[in-house]
Design a protein around this nucleic acid. Structure first.
Lengths: 135, 135
DNA sequence: ATAAGGCTTCCAGTGTCTGGAAGGTCAAGG
DNA sequence: CCTTGACCTTCCAGACACTGGAAGCCTTAT
């Protein structure tokens, strides 16, 4: 199967698939004309990586997951550990974003947003009047 | 003021400050010896950018905010629009991460995590048994 | 024969720094 | 005066995960 069809079936752009080959995530064979030739196994791996990436796993985490997937004798605990570590990273990112949301939301709330120049958002960013002064 | 002190006062690494000069966010003067010489205004700008970055604004958004900050005649509505657009981006990121958290959390929950190879996480990523089979 | 579309490789750019090398400057101590 | 160490300078390269584009070969249809 050529790269265009592999792209359609895996949901990944052809460019990305070539990149994945470059970094050694997949190793499709080659047809006589030099075209990449994707087997079913290759396709499964691509789809696997696509799903793992969509869950936020880094490329290196995907590589680790793929090698666990290939290892018939793996311990599911190893996979679970990797996934839990990633869940922690996700939670931290969410917490960070929620903190931003709260702070910025408060500033936005305080800003009247008309054509006058006075702006609590800029004041907050500048560090002047950072605390509420008769909010 | 030298870059080391500017770094301490703004909370930004010296490397980052040099980078910000490179891309034109700040333009400190130079002392006779070639060292950068940061004025109070430069320091304020650096601290401003530091805060804006910590709220997740991109460099280009920071550039826009700085120019609004410099513009005594700005309309606060312009600032508010920028901030609200950024709040939307934050909300979208949070939603995306929460979706990942939910999906991955369910997979982790289903995985017994012992030394046997059977692993619902890998099955889920592989697309086989993606739906719960007697979860 | 030709044209369209898919495939190949390679180079460069995205965004935001970060690390390191090679070398100039400054203040303190001997 | 010389050395040492901390600080400063510039420039190059790398990190992440692609993405775009150019130049050129291969396949298929007309």
């Amino acid at each position: 199967m050529n790269i265009g069809d592999a792209a359609k079936q895996s949901g990944l752009p052809a460019k990305t698939i070539r990149y994945y080959e470059d970094i050694g995530l997949v190793a499709p064979g080659r047809a006589g004309n030099g075209y990449r030739d994707f087997s079913d196994t290759d396709l499964h791996k691509l789809a696997f990586v696509q799903r793992a990436r969509s869950l936020g796993f880094s490329i290196e985490e995907c590589r680790a997951l793929l090698s666990l997937y290939d290892d018939r004798g793996r311990a599911s605990a190893d996979v679970k550990d990797l996934a839990k570590a990633h869940l922690n990273q996700i939670s931290e990112k969410i917490a960070g974003l929620q903190a931003m949301q709260k702070t910025l939301g408060e500033l936005v709330h305080k800003c009247h947003g008309d054509d006058r120049p006075d702006c609590p958002i800029l004041d907050g960013l500048a560090g002047t009047k950072a605390k509420e002064d008769a909010a």
